[in-house]
Design a protein around this nucleic acid. Structure first.
Lengths: 134, 134
DNA sequence: CCCATGCTACTACACGTGTAGTAGGCGTCA
DNA sequence: TGACGCCTACTACACGTGTAGTAGCATGGG
């Protein structure tokens, strides 16, 4: 069997995304440290964060190690993997699983600000210019 | 105050998206008709679909009218509004609320197939060609 | 030596979501 | 006219998620 690289990519809930963002931004980190980083955004109680971290550990998205009796966390799931999963999920729910229809939507839809659309086009030009990267 | 156009856009769950897709594809429609359209994809029981429809009606995403004693459904939420909400939600969860970082991600990330990236670029060229749409 | 603090482990609980089931009414075909 | 089938209204129930609370152990300061 060997790799099995796509073995259950965990889908993150909203609150879990917040935790992961904090953890990606600075890790390893203790719950206290994460709470400090998240408190203005969320106002969570310490135990709330601990619950979320425990769930993330269960999901395999975060590792927990005891450092001197205190839990220290480290992300296992990488941000781009998580993003990828989230994008795929959106595509399947709302865009026929198709990538093109998302882009099409982004380009055509009024509700995405025209500033956004401009940015999109700029990025694409930029990307073309720079060739197919790597 | 006046407009308040963004007054609670309903977020759709996965199953609800399926219903809405069927309904957008063909409406007005009865539950039976929708079930017929959805049955291979979902295998839902009739009552399951009814439950989902009821929830969508509650959310204001679908209208229900009695036609001769039988419920007939019509989408109230338009597909592009729903898509827009979903995209915004993704951006906020996973892409700093920023549109650019999503595009950037799409262009840079290996996990979106290169077929996808190719399609993206094609669409953009096409869109540029056609100008900024009427 | 004992209390305040801080950490961990476990529990709680409401609401959303996926997925139905049951009861009861109505038309229709035999 | 009674059984069959279809529809509606209501109920159920497990699991995920958001958001904590409580109990109990350790440790350091007075």
């Amino acid at each position: 069997m060997a790799k099995r690289r796509n073995d259950a990519l965990p889908a993150l809930s909203d609150a879990e995304w917040k935790v992961m963002r904090a953890l990606w931004a600075r890790h390893p980190a203790t719950a206290r440290e994460l709470l400090a980083a998240l408190t203005t955004e969320t106002g969570w109680a310490y135990t709330t964060l601990r619950t979320l971290l425990a769930r993330l550990v269960e999901k395999g998205a975060v590792s927990e190690s005891k450092e001197d009796g205190t839990s220290v966390y480290e992300p296992l799931l990488r941000e781009d993997r998580a993003r990828s999963t989230a994008v795929r999920s959106l595509l399947e729910r709302a865009f026929d699983g198709g990538f093109g229809s998302l882009v099409h939507f982004m380009l055509e839809n009024e509700e995405l600000s025209s500033r956004d659309r401009t940015e999109l086009e700029r990025m694409l030009l930029e990307s073309k210019k720079k060739g197919s990267r790597s």
